[in-house]
């Protein structure tokens, strides 16, 4: 077994390890490859990172590219270049300065991507800001704060309102009419079901718009189903 454990304040040059554990404040100056990385404090990796599992409870900064099978963020991760991961569970915050590509994303915190973001399965109970294209197979989004992307494209995209049953939050809502929504310039997909969204152009095959959807223009192929309170300025049926 070749493990790296850093406790306290320290630095390492990188390399290939089985397990890397950081409890404290560490700097890794080169590329690092390992089976599992656990960071409970603060870590800064100046090279590229490759791991099967990355678990961050504290604050991690990767200045290079990150490639992993599984990423779990309870704290914060900042990535300088690109991220490629099979599964990502984000309970804290993930910031990516390049583009990112995932198989499945479970987002319960925040995600920020400066480039494009790709995922087969995109499950959101939090918020995201994507400055490029969000390209998804299926997306299931419940925005807890505004979810922004320049463009969203995919096969099936569902946006639902936060379900607040009773209690103080409902009262709070009574005084502040703010409601989180998905905001984007353009959304394109096969099946779109949007409860709460603010979109300039929607294009798709089957589109359902809920009561708090506001759309400038809808272009649909098969059918459009819209709630009477949904704001739609223009709806056009496109025939193939």
């Amino acid at each position: 077994m070749n493990n790296l454990t850093l406790i306290g304040h320290g630095s390492a040059s990188g390399g290939v390890y089985d397990r890397v554990k950081i409890n404290g404040d560490a700097t890794i100056t080169g590329d690092i490859e390992c089976d599992e990385m656990i960071c409970n404090g603060r870590v800064k990796v100046k090279g590229n990172m490759k791991a099967k599992v990355i678990r961050v409870h504290g604050d991690a900064t990767f200045e290079g590219n990150v490639k992993a099978t599984r990423i779990k963020v309870y704290g914060q991760i900042t990535v300088g270049k690109t991220v490629e991961a099979k599964n990502a569970s984000i309970y804290g915050e993930l910031k990516v300065k390049g583009s990112s590509s995932f198989d499945t994303v479970k987002l319960k915190g925040g995600l920020q991507v400066a480039g494009d973001c790709e995922a087969e399965d995109f499950h959101v109970r939090g918020a995201f800001t994507i400055h490029g294209l969000l390209n998804v197979g299926t997306a299931d989004i419940v925005p807890f704060a505004d979810c922004k992307a320049m463009e969203i494209g995919g096969e099936k995209i569902v946006v639902k309102k936060v379900n607040r049953p009773f209690g103080i939050i409902k009262w709070f809502k009574f005084f502040s009419p703010y409601e989180a929504e998905v905001v984007t310039d353009m959304m394109e997909g096969d099946d779109l079901e949007l409860d709460t969204a603010k979109i300039k152009i929607i294009r798709g095959n089957r589109i359902t718009l809920g009561e708090s959807a506001a759309v400038d223009r809808v272009e649909y192929r098969d059918h459009l189903d819209k709630h009477e309170q949904a704001e739609v300025k223009e709806a056009v049926r496109v025939t193939a």
Binding site: N135, V136, G189, D190, R203, N205, A240
Partner: peptide, 13 residues
């Protein structure tokens, strides 16, 4: 081409 948005995005992914 008769393909859908979903297919196009899928192929892009």
């Amino acid at each position: 081409t008769g393909i859908s948005y979903g297919q196009l995005y899928r192929w892009k992914r």
